[in-house]
């Protein structure tokens, strides 16, 4: 493995970890449920994206042939993350509108 590959893999892992951390910081710092929902979306898109890319590069250079697991991981994550965020926010909205003054739903 060349130095350049090692450096780019390390950079991607650090970047991914940094965004996962930022997502968690957001989860802890933001004031209410709906703003907190934004933290995990960030961690799953760029954070996991960068880590998965690093993994793909690492195993492609380490073994013969291309490593494609990671593409499947990314694809499933990108399909499921919006759905779970959507379901949680919808549930939160229903709880909110159950209170008398915000009867929108």
């Amino acid at each position: 493995m060349s130095t350049l590959t090692e450096f780019s893999i390390s950079a991607l892992i650090v970047l991914g970890a940094a965004f996962a951390l930022l997502g968690s910081v957001g989860l802890a710092r933001l004031p209410d449920f709906f703003t907190r929902l934004h933290g995990p979306t960030k961690a799953t898109t760029l954070g996991v994206g960068a880590m998965v890319l690093a993994s793909a590069i690492y195993f492609t250079t380490l073994q013969a042939g291309v490593s494609l697991h990671e593409i499947a991981v990314m694809l499933f994550l990108f399909i499921t993350a919006p759905v779970s965020a959507h379901l949680m926010s919808k549930a939160a909205l229903h709880r909110r509108s159950a209170k008398p003054q915000q009867g929108q739903q």
Partner: peptide, 12 residues
């Protein structure tokens, strides 16, 4: 889904 995946906005 696109709106949810781009950070800063979540579709409800």
């Amino acid at each position: 889904s696109i709106v949810s995946l781009t950070p800063g906005t979540v579709s409800i």
